[in-house]
Design a protein around this nucleic acid. Structure first.
Lengths: 349, 349
DNA sequence: TCATGTAGCGCTCAGCTGGTC
DNA sequence: AGACCAGCTGAGCGCTACATG
C-alpha cells in the first residue's frame, strides 16, 4: 500500500503522515514544530513517515493559523535595467539572510500595474513589500492607503512621516562627480540627464550645480544641462550627439552609466578621445562600468548596504511591533575613479 | 465606529465586511466570486462595505479551499547575468498574460540552494515552477522526486520523459555562427568557451565542429577551442589574451556575449581591429550586444517564444489534468549580423 | 430568486486524558 | 496519591461550496 510520492494525486497532508505513523495529527505537528515535546521513539517513527511520504507542510495553512509569512514582495520599475537588477539581487541576499524569500514583481514604470501588484501582494498576505516607486514624482500620499495595510519600505524615495525609506543621497553624488571633474581642471561641463521628469536625475543635477557654486563658479556658465528622453545607451548617444553640435565640453557627467556608455559612443564616433578630449563620469557603477572599453569613472551606490537596511527596516516594521516609528536611512554614494576621467588610473578595479 | 483601514490592527476579514454590510459571510463571498447570484441592491451595499474597509481577500485562505494558486516559481542560476534576466523578464511577461505572477528565486548555481528553493515553493503550494537547472550536467534523475510533487518545466535542459522542457537548439546555433564566418571567408576560427563543464557551451562547440565538417574542413585544423573559467567579460578577456599568444585567428566565436565583449577588449588592447583583423560572433544577443562599441554579431535566442512556451506548458501541466503527457519544445536560434563580423552592416538593428 | 448556515480546506495550539513513578 | 509527561482532541485561522429556507 506504499504510495510513491511522485505518483500520488494531490499533495501529502499532515493527516496522511499521522495515519502512516499511527499517531494523531497534533503529534506530527509537534514533532515538526516542537520536537522536544515528543518522545524520541515516536519522533523517529513520525520522521520516517514524513520522509517516506515526502511530506512538505503547507505553508499557506500555517500562515492561516497565525505564523508570519516568510515572503517579502519586491516591486521594481524595470527588471531589465542593470542597476535595478543589481539592487534586486542585493535585496534578495539580505532578505535571504533573514530566512525569508523575495517575490520579485515588475511594475514597468506603470502606476496602475504597481497598484495591482501591491494589491496582489496584500492578497498573498506577504510579510511586507519593498517598493521602488514607479512614478518619477509620486507624492508620498500615494502610498498612504495601501491595500490591506501592507507594511512597506520605500527604496530611493522619501516617504515622509508615513513610511520607512532607504535612500541614497543623489545631491551629494552629483557634487562628488563635479568636484572630481573640477579637481582635474575641467570647467566646461555638461550634465547629461537633465530630463525634467526623473527625480533622481534632478537631484544629481542639483548637486552638480551646488558643487560649482561652492567652487565659486556660476552653474549657468559652466554647466550645460542636456535632456534625455530615456535612460538607455541610445538615449545617451543621441543626447551627446546633440550636445556636440554646440561645442565640445571638457567633461560630461551622466545621470547613469548607460547614458555614459552612449555618450562614449557619440564621442568616439565624432573622433574624440576619452578621457583626453572629453572626460566622462557615470552614475550607479553597474557591473559593466569597470569592464567598458574605457573603464568608466562612476558614482557608486551602496547597493549591498541599501539592501541590508531595507530588509531590516521591513522586518522590524512587519514584526507586529505596534507603535512602529517610521525611519529614514540615507546612505552616501562613493566616487570610483577609472580611466574614463583619468588616464593615470589603472584599468582594473 | 468606522475604523479607518490604515489604522487598524490586523487585516480586514470577510466577516468584518459581512458585519458592516449586515449580511452573512457567504453573501460577501458570493458578491466577490459570483456577483450574478446576488441581488443588485445587496451587491451595492456589500461592495460599499468592501471599499470602506479596504478589504482584500486572503488568497492563502482561498487556495486552502481549493482555488488554484496564481503564483509560479521561477528558479534561475544567476539573477545578475543579463541573459538570465532577459529570459526571466520574458517569462514574467508570459506568465502575467495568463493572469499569474512570478516568484523569482536565485539558486546561484548551487545545488543545495536549488533544492531548498524547490522545497520552499512546494511549501508555498505554488502552481508550479519553471526551473533553469543549477547544474552544468545534472542528470534529469535529479528532478524525479520533487518535494510535494511540484509540477515543473525545465528551461534549456532536456528532462527526458519525466518532465516538460523548453530548449533552444545550441548545436544549431553553433553551426549558424560558423557558417556565417565561413561565408565571410574565415577559416582559422577560435571557439572561446570550450569550458568542459558547461553543457550549453559544449553543444555550441559541437555545432561549430559539425558545420566545419559539413563544409569539408577538419575541425582539428580549423577550430581552436579555448577554455574559459567563467562566463564574464574578464574571463573572455583573459582567454582571448591567452589565445593571441599562439597566433591571431581570422575570427572568434564566443560561447556568450559577455565573453565576446571581453575578447573585443583583448583584441583592441593588442592593437587589432574588429572586424578588419578579427571578426567576433557572440551568443545570446543580449540587449547590450547591439550597443557595444562595435555592435556585436550574435546568435539570438528566441527568449519571448521560450517564455510563452514554458508558461503554457506549466499551466497545462499544473491544470490537474491527470494523465499529463510530458512535452519537449525545441526552439531555433537566429543569426543576427552586425558590424563585429561584417563591416558593411549598419550600426543599428 | 436570493440569502443563510454550515462543513471543511491543512494546520497549530491550548487544554486535556491517561498511564508512570 | 500527586506530579508529570506523552500524546490526543477540538476549536479556529479566512474563505468557499453546497444544501437549505
Amino acid at each position: 500500500m506504499s504510495r510513491s510520492p511522485a505518483h500520488e494525486r494531490g499533495p501529502v497532508r499532515l493527516r496522511d503522515v499521522a495515519e502512516l505513523a499511527g499517531v494523531a495529527t497534533g503529534t506530527v505537528s509537534n514533532t515538526i514544530n516542537h520536537p522536544e515535546r515528543v518522545h524520541p521513539r515516536t519522533r523517529v517513527v513520525v520522521e520516517d513517515a514524513i520522509r517516506t511520504l515526502g511530506f512538505v507542510p503547507n505553508q499557506q495553512a500555517r500562515v492561516l493559523t497565525g505564523a508570519a509569512s516568510s515572503v517579502i514582495g519586491l516591486v521594481v520599475l524595470d527588471v531589465e535595467s542593470p542597476f535595478y537588477m543589481e539592487t534586486a539581487h542585493a535585496l534578495e541576499r539580505a532578505v535571504r539572510e533573514s530566512g525569508n524569500v523575495v517575490m520579485l514583481c515588475n511594475s514597468e514604470g506603470d502606476l496602475e500595474r504597481e497598484e495591482a501588484l501591491l494589491t496582489m501582494l496584500a492578497a498573498q498576505r506577504v510579510r511586507g513589500a519593498l517598493l521602488a516607486p514607479a512614478t518619477p514624482d509620486a507624492h508620498a500620499d500615494r502610498y498612504l492607503n495601501l491595500p490591506g495595510n501592507l507594511p512597506i519600505v520605500l527604496l530611493d524615495f522619501d516617504g515622509g512621516d508615513e513610511h520607512c525609506s532607504v535612500t541614497v543621497d543623489n545631491v551629494s553624488g552629483g557634487a562628488l562627480a563635479i568636484n572630481h571633474l573640477l579637481g582635474l581642471g575641467h570647467t566646461r561641463i555638461a550634465f547629461l540627464g537633465g530630463s525634467p521628469n526623473l527625480r533622481q536625475f534632478r537631484q544629481r543635477a542639483k548637486g552638480a550645480r551646488g558643487a560649482l557654486q561652492a567652487a565659486g563658479l556660476d552653474p549657468r556658465e559652466h554647466l550645460t544641462e542636456v535632456s534625455v528622453s530615456g535612460i538607455g545607451i541610445r538615449d545617451g548617444q543621441q543626447a551627446a550627439e546633440l550636445l556636440l553640435e554646440s561645442g565640445v565640453p571638457d567633461a560630461i557627467f551622466c545621470g547613469n552609466d548607460m547614458l555614459a556608455f552612449g555618450a562614449y559612443r557619440a564621442l568616439t564616433s565624432a573622433g574624440l578621445s576619452v578621457p583626453d578630449d572629453v572626460a566622462i563620469v557615470g552614475y550607479d557603477d553597474i557591473e559593466f562600468a569597470k569592464d567598458w572599453v574605457v573603464p568608466l569613472t562612476s558614482i557608486r551606490q551602496p547597493i549591498a548596504s541599501l539592501g541590508q537596511h531595507a530588509a531590516q527596516l521591513l522586518l522590524e516594521h512587519s514584526a507586529g511591533d505596534d507603535a512602529h516609528e517610521h525611519r529614514h536611512v540615507v546612505l552616501e554614494p562613493e566616487l570610483i575613479v577609472r580611466s574614463s576621467s583619468d588616464r593615470r588610473r589603472a584599468t582594473t578595479a
